[in-house]
């Protein structure tokens, strides 16, 4: 009976400690680390800046801007896609990969799983252009 009662105290204390350790781990591991929040913020800025620059760039052949040119038609997309992919890669920093989606097709690289990505969508007279960027 003595043994039983003593061990209950220890068991209670043990449970208490486990609870507190659980809370500790929640704080140390569960709070999103500053790095991932910063990475996402930075990548969002990259995506914003890239689409802003592209949206203000003159087109190569016709239409009003580079992005409205590529969303004009399937032929325009097929004609311009390699050039545009080169241009996006040129605008973005070297360690950033991208994927650009339009209604006529997709440019760039497939988005890997489990990667922090920044994104930006711009409207053109002909349709939407969606850009996703992530660190390679």
């Amino acid at each position: 009976m003595n043994r039983g009662q003593a061990s209950i105290t220890i068991v209670e204390a043990g449970i208490g400690i486990l609870l507190l350790l659980g809370i500790t781990f929640a704080f140390t591991l569960g709070v999103p680390s500053a790095d991932s929040a910063k990475t996402e913020t930075q990548l969002d800025r990259y995506a914003d800046d890239a689409t802003t620059l592209l949206a203000n760039e003159p087109p190569r052949h016709q239409d009003q801007t580079r992005l409205s040119e590529i969303t004009a038609s399937q032929e325009a997309f097929d004609r311009e896609k390699d050039e545009l992919a080169g241009r996006v890669a040129e605008i973005l920093p070297d360690n950033v990969m991208f994927r650009l989606e339009t209604q006529y097709g997709t440019l760039g690289y497939p988005l890997p799983d489990d990667v922090t990505a920044g994104e930006s969508t711009v409207l053109t007279p002909n349709g939407e252009v969606h850009l996703e960027v992530w660190y390679a």
Binding site: T9, I10, A13, I17, F27
Partner: peptide, 18 residues
Amino acid sequence: GIAFLFLTVALLITVAAA
């Protein structure tokens, strides 16, 4: 006594971590 000691230490660690 020991249980309280452990609990106090664990509590301090938790509060510090938080």
